[in-house]
Write a protein that binds this DNA or RNA. Sequence first.
DNA 1: TCCACTTAAGCAACGCTGTTGCCAAAGTGC
DNA 2: GCACTTTGGCAACAGCGTTGCTTAAGTGGA
Lengths: 352, 352
Amino acid sequence: MGVNVPALRSHNAALVLDLLRTAGETGISRLELAERTGLTPQAVSKITARLRAEGLATEAGHRASTGGKPRTVLRMVPSAAYAVGVHLDRDELTALLTDLAGAVVALRRRPVDLGAGAGPVLDAVTEEVRALLADPPGSVLGVGLAMPGPLDHRAGVPGRVTGFPEWAGHPVRDELAARLGLPVVLDKDTNAAALGLALRPTAPGSFAYVHLGTGLGAGLVLGGAPLRGDRTGAGELGHQTVQLDGPPCGCGGRGCLEVLCLAAVARGELPEAARILGTGAANLVRLLDIDQVLLGGRVVLAAPSVFAEGVRGVLAGLGLSAPVGLATGRDAVAEGAAWLTLAPVFGKQAEL
Amino acid sequence: MGVNVPALRSHNAALVLDLLRTAGETGISRLELAERTGLTPQAVSKITARLRAEGLATEAGHRASTGGKPRTVLRMVPSAAYAVGVHLDRDELTALLTDLAGAVVALRRRPVDLGAGAGPVLDAVTEEVRALLADPPGSVLGVGLAMPGPLDHRAGVPGRVTGFPEWAGHPVRDELAARLGLPVVLDKDTNAAALGLALRPTAPGSFAYVHLGTGLGAGLVLGGAPLRGDRTGAGELGHQTVQLDGPPCGCGGRGCLEVLCLAAVARGELPEAARILGTGAANLVRLLDIDQVLLGGRVVLAAPSVFAEGVRGVLAGLGLSAPVGLATGRDAVAEGAAWLTLAPVFGKQAEL
DNA sequence: TCCACTTAAGCAACGCTGTTGCCAAAGTGC
DNA sequence: GCACTTTGGCAACAGCGTTGCTTAAGTGGA
């Protein structure tokens, strides 16, 4: 909790590297970095010199002069390091390799059955990750693994995944780390997706990633940081009561959003499902004062405009101005999983 | 955003001072401070020497020896500084003076009518604060002012307070600061109360303060920090939809928690009101993975056990283990308001 | 073409941070 | 009484960002 001088140094270095990252291909000059960080230009020069010496940054041309020496443009070097992201879903495994900028370099997919138990499934994960790393791309930071909740991201252990009791308590993170010889970070699928979305250069400060697939969940990003909660339980949108004394749910409650929404989907009433989802989204927007809602998950992606329009309609009807968007696509969770290991490089989510 | 050496110094000093504060009367030794902060004992010695020189800390006895030189106990000096907290409610004004530890030193109360307009009401606030400070207690850090929402805590300006349109946009913070010659911080009543509760030494990391008075709102504390949102809108619990297509609400929605809950109160059905409130609280606990629910507000305090038991029952029925408590009492908001100016001294809520 | 001017960025000296190594102070217990 | 343990201050130190100055590299008017 206390900060000493080396900690200060690495904090500022991470801050500068993050600005280089978000500047992307465009790059950014030393003086802009100084303005954005509040540090003096001289300090930025020192920090960027170290980053260049480590191969993390490079000079890339000049800006137009404004009457004096033109600013030198600096850029991050994405190939300086790589990370693996794994999305372990109930029936499918997606593993991908990204560079330091989060761009997908390679991808592998195969069907799996979570019900087959931890041993065989982790065998499959190990195989796919080894295959990705067979052609060694350079320094690999680690592996991010995203699974359906509930789980404990600090211990790296799944909880009672609905329908897959044998996973509960299995030391997934440590076992995979031992097999691969790489650091592994475990998190909930929705949290991983939200993290990946949160670190896009254009991301708003606070938003919710609402995922409608085999279940209904959300990843919450508040003030730039994902909210996990002490028990990795945050984002349990599916079991919000939106119908007092409504139909019972397996969770013990009644009128849960997930039950109502998925029932509408099952009936084929997608606009009604979108309206129910919109009510849940509106509750989020109002309770947390967030800037944006991003929809994702298989059910949404099967009829994106129906859901986007439906949710948008509910928010507009309540006078809420938060825009509604769609999350990138099929691999949002796996890409976010890679960010679980990339993020610390940029000083994000220090405490996992 | 960047951190330089003086910033590091003040950060560590605030950190140490906060540990002294939470240690309270008991005090804490230099070595414990070193363990808790991660700093070396020598660094802690230097920092505490400065704090003692500034009069913020003092030595207070010794611990029992464990085989060597006994540890010297350090304590914060609460009388080193004071702060004013003002709770401006729809019909009542509470102003109090606290010391650096947040203990109430003096209190004044009078009826007001928010509808009388900003001018006369701010006159009354000015009078009461001046009266509190008539017998000057020492260094006064500033004034925290808590009002019903909506408002903009960054600009220090109320929004459209329901039923009191003339307050909208009035520069309350700046005007009061000019009148009193002291820094003023404005925040929503529920946020102030939550802040005060969050800074108690025994507070859990994440909790919700649920306030049921003339309206229904919540103050959310996540990971030790109050959540306000960019528009100070976070905590709008009252307009969470918990009854799809339920009775209409003035907000444009249907089945809002506030409408249902207050209707039950109006019918005299307090257990039913508690059950509805409990449903809202359960939604909070699940969505945000919080550790505790604290109930407050006039309606709750009029029948505390009914509401506490009712909410507790709903949570227990859903298998949620978060304990339900009652917020201290009538002046929770005013005491929290004082913390709006005290908190920065301890490195809390840097960004207001 | 020249030259004054502006802006960018590195070099060197500096102040200040927390750290390290050492030692005095103040207890315990054989 | 003495060996031992633990606390906490003193002094020297490495390393951070800052300050003052210099050099590099442009623009634009005479």
